[in-house]
Amino acid sequence: MRVRKAVLPVAGFGTRVLPATKAIPKELLPVVDRPALQYVVDEALEAGIEHIVFVTGRNKGAIEDYFDIPYELEVALEKKGKDAILEQVRATTLPAGAASFVRQQSPLGLGHAVWCARDIIGNEPFAILLPDVIVKAQPSGLAQMVEAYNKVGGNIVAVDPVPMERVSSYGVIAPVSRDGRLIKMSGMVEKPPVESAPSNLKITGRYILQPEVFGLLEDQDPGAGGEIQLTDAMARQMESQDFYAYEFDGKEYDCGSKAGYFEAVLAHALDNEEIADAAKSLVKQYASNL
């Protein structure tokens, strides 16, 4: 079956970027001229996703408002003849019926957040995009994964290489065989010691999973941090279904950390036609003072 739906877990507190996230959902922190979440949604849409399920929590109403039609703003921009800005604003509105919002009432982990979307996803394969991660790629990171999925089916996780000395900070895969960027895998190891790590391919926040994972999440015991972990259910699913990793062609930015967020802003500023020259000038100015 074609991958038509995607789950975006957006219920987290954003503790790594406090105090900014006291009042602003971390997913709406701006990366140049649009919130981080917009980049993730655009990635999903480019991959052919037709329906996005946002798993929200308390104080996340601004996310729902952001993707709605801002009538007063559009009227004001239209009256002032600001057509270019109006077009940009309208491009952020999701089509009617293309988004659902469900609540995760308690922060019980990523696996629990995904499970909350079970009735909307139904019995079909689906994508998961972690909103903390912006993937800068062409075609989009998820589009590359969907192309691979259309060839092999099964379940696919996105990976990218890190220096071997840093593998103990990430979850990495155990590869079996490789065909170009597609890798058959036999397992996942969370933060392994360097000397016993099965690879240097870390798991990035993009997944394509079969719907059987919902049944596994239903009775999944709490794992690390006392939370329902998606990776624990995936490990069980791996016993009966094929799993692949896909080393995408692109660059990922972890906007969930302050340094990663700064890197994302800088990279996208340097790539923005409107401000690229000014951004380059500022970078040179500050670099010369170091």
Rank of each mutant, 00 (worst) to 15 (best):
D277K: 12
V146G: 02
A36N: 10
S257E: 11
L129C: 04
S281M: 11
S186Y: 03
A224H: 12
V41S: 06
L28K: 01
S169Y: 15
E218M: 03
D219S: 14
A20D: 06
I49N: 02
I208E: 09
R178T: 12
A6H: 02
I228V: 15
I134D: 02
A269W: 07
Y246C: 06
V40Q: 09
G97K: 08
K22T: 12
N59C: 05
I203S: 08
G61Q: 11
Y207H: 13
E50D: 10
E273M: 04
K151P: 00
G97P: 04
V283E: 14
M164C: 04
D119Q: 09
V41P: 01
Y244V: 02
L86F: 06
V135C: 12
V162A: 10
P25N: 08
D221T: 08
Q144G: 04
M238Y: 06
G122K: 11
V152Y: 10
V176L: 15
M188V: 13
E43H: 02
L201Q: 08
V167L: 12
E43C: 05
Y39C: 03
S257D: 07
Q229A: 11
M1R: 11
P131C: 03
E239Y: 04
G256V: 03
P95A: 11
V53H: 01
F243A: 07
V114T: 01
F243K: 06
P161I: 09
A279P: 00
K280V: 02
Q237P: 00
E239M: 12
N150T: 12
V3E: 03
G12D: 11
L129Y: 02
D42W: 03
S196G: 00
V157K: 07
I134H: 03
V55T: 01
R58L: 07
V53R: 00
T15R: 15
F243W: 14
G141E: 03
L142W: 02
V133H: 14
Q104K: 01
E227C: 02
K202Y: 09
G226V: 06
D42Y: 02
Y207L: 10
S168P: 00
A76I: 04
A44M: 07
G81P: 07
E274V: 11
V167R: 08
T15V: 14
D119G: 01
Y66K: 05
S140M: 06
N150V: 07
A23N: 11
M238I: 08
K191T: 13
F248N: 10
Q144Y: 02
E273G: 12
E87P: 00
D254Y: 14
V157Y: 09
S186W: 01
R16C: 04
K79V: 13
Q285Y: 14
D65M: 09
D33I: 05
G97I: 07
D254T: 04
P107Q: 06
F54P: 01
L142G: 01
A137F: 05
E212K: 12
E263S: 13
P30K: 08
Q38W: 14
N289K: 14
F262E: 14
E263F: 10
H112F: 08
T56C: 09
E252L: 05
N155P: 05
E274W: 07
V213L: 13
P163F: 09
M164T: 14
V41A: 09
L290R: 11
E263I: 00
L18T: 08
L77S: 13
E227V: 10
I228P: 00
G226C: 05
P131V: 10
H268L: 13
V133L: 15
A264M: 05
D132P: 03
F214P: 01
L8P: 00
Q229R: 15
A224R: 14
L77H: 12
